[in-house]
């Protein structure tokens, strides 16, 4: 059986309570009759969380400022003050996201080769082209950070957060039991976030006077918009082909 067909086939999923007509009601009745060991609600735990939040320090900071020696005068001016760190943090975020993006497409390409595609689904060439886009965007961010005198190997706070956000996406794409459609569904999260990320970075660069960088970000944004639209189109096509019961034929052909 091809895994692209998995969302719609019927197996022996045992997770629902209806699968246990004798034990299920006993479990529900027992839980309903047993009083909790203390009164209250979910807000009791929320209160503990609130106190921790009040006491918590930051999870990390930006690296120390880069040396300004050797930088062009205009770049020095643009890097003065707090606003520079905001930009460098966001550049670091995009760098990390695009670098991971290359690896996500590596995973999608394996998935494609293992499972094939469907009518209206991606071609190998498209996946390879998108991978190249991500790699170029990564390189763009490396160059931008170097140009601003920053260390492109540092993990900035926003880069760290975005990596934590992406954990589930990577877990789905790298699981050999998931099909290409599952993996693209995960990738859709990454592509939508990427569009929002480039949009923000283009605006921020413009606002801070980095017009050349802003133009490059807008070019990357246009490509990411194409990625997001393509992934959405492939997923819609998959759902429609599956709903018509034509998935197996489509995959076989």
């Amino acid at each position: 059986m091809n895994k692209n067909d998995r969302p719609t086939d019927i197996g022996i999923n045992r997770t629902g309570i209806a699968l246990s007509p004798l034990d299920g009601p006993l479990t529900a009745e027992g839980a309903s009759a047993a009083p909790p060991s203390s009164a209250g609600s979910w807000q009791d735990a929320a209160m503990v969380r609130l106190r921790y939040a009040a006491e918590a320090s930051e999870f990390g900071h930006m690296p120390p400022p880069a040396t300004l020696r050797g930088l062009a005068k205009t770049a020095k001016e643009l890097l003065k003050g707090h606003k520079a760190n905001v930009l460098l943090d966001k550049l670091g975020e995009r760098l990390a996201f695009e670098r991971t993006g290359v690896r996500l497409y590596d995973g999608l390409i394996v998935k494609f080769e293992a499972n094939g595609s469907w009518e209206g689904g991606p071609t190998l060439e498209e996946l390879v082209a998108f991978r190249s886009d991500e790699a170029r965007h990564f390189e763009l961010m490396v160059q931008a950070l170097v140009k601003l005198g920053a260390d492109p190997t540092a993990m900035t706070p926003s880069a760290d957060i975005t990596a934590v956000e992406s954990l589930g996406v990577l877990q789905v794409i790298s699981d050999p039991r998931t099909g290409l459609a599952h993996a693209l569904h995960a990738q859709q999260i990454a592509e939508l976030a990427d569009v929002a990320g480039w949009d923000l970075l283009a605006s921020l660069s413009e606002t801070l006077g980095h017009t050349e960088l802003a133009a490059e970000c807008r070019r990357a944004l246009a490509q990411e918009n194409l990625h997001a639209a393509a992934v959405a189109r492939w997923l819609k096509a998959h759902a429609e082909v599956a709903a018509r019961g034509e998935l197996e034929q489509a995959v076989a052909s």
Partner: peptide, 14 residues
């Protein structure tokens, strides 16, 4: 912690 997390808690299907 064990009281805070389950204050007033009844498990229900779903």
């Amino acid at each position: 912690p064990s009281e805070a997390v389950a204050a007033g808690y009844h498990w229900r299907p779903g």
